[in-house]
Amino acid sequence: MAIRLDYVMKETGQNLTRNFTLTFAAILTVAVSLTMVAASYLIGTGINNSFLGLRSEQQLLVYMNPSAEEDQIDSVSRALEESPQVEEIDFYNRERTFDEFQTLFREQPDLLSSVTAEDLPTSFRVKPTSTDAEVVSALGDTFAEREGVLRVAYAAEYARQVQRSVNTLNRWVTVVGVVLIGASVLLIFNTIRTAVFARRREIEVQRLVGARNWFIRMPFIVEGLVHGLMGALLAAGGTLAFDALWQRNFVDQVAFELLNQIRWTSGDVVSAILIITVIGALTGAVGSGIAVSRFLRA
């Protein structure tokens, strides 16, 4: 005696439409919370992607003016080699910088085509002997004032700063997302409770004629799952929108030095969507499961 699929679909469909406002609110809450979870996952992944390499090395970046004279570059190079605080230097000429640029921005062909090697500054990647932030910073200061130097950047410190601020932001997104998932569970719980109440006559008759417990419960569990999965579906759209917005506003904008480092792949977006689908289904199942076990006791 298999349960009839058309029965479950019909009953669930009726429940969903009968309680349209509550259903809508539940699905929307699930969608918002899952979008936040997905965004937080992507940002977290992005942070790891961009700073994992940098974290290990204590680097000083001396950027030269694009218009710097050859002898200015030579003089900086000599001074760096002579400095006892410098262990190693590595010069990035225009071609090397452009190569690196192409690797970094391989997913943005528009950007690549708009930049030529001539637009990019040359730079020295300096590995100081000390890893002490103050020593490194003092070393950097002595070069910042030299002629032809555009500016000096501290890779590790810089990375840590970005990481810290983005991490803080991300933690809040996660917290709000998790709180909203809790709210979703409660909303689904209430929606199912209302549905059970609306169907109390049917349930009474079903009990009376000997319907099995799971048969009575099934449409409600499915309804909760639909809430969760519909929310996840909307949230998948939200995730794609978030991804697109992030790409357009941060990653593709060289101006956002802090945020354009945080990037993720389309594979990460797919994982994020899979994760929120699972969370969405669980949210629906838990919400309806609690409601059903409380209000449809055998």
């Binding site: 005696m1 009839r4 049917e202 008759v205 319907a211 099995r212």
Partner: peptide
């Protein structure tokens, strides 16, 4: 019919 549906009788 509802009573028969409830006990899973075929259509």
């Amino acid at each position: 019919a509802f009573a028969l549906e409830a006990i899973g009788r075929p259509r």
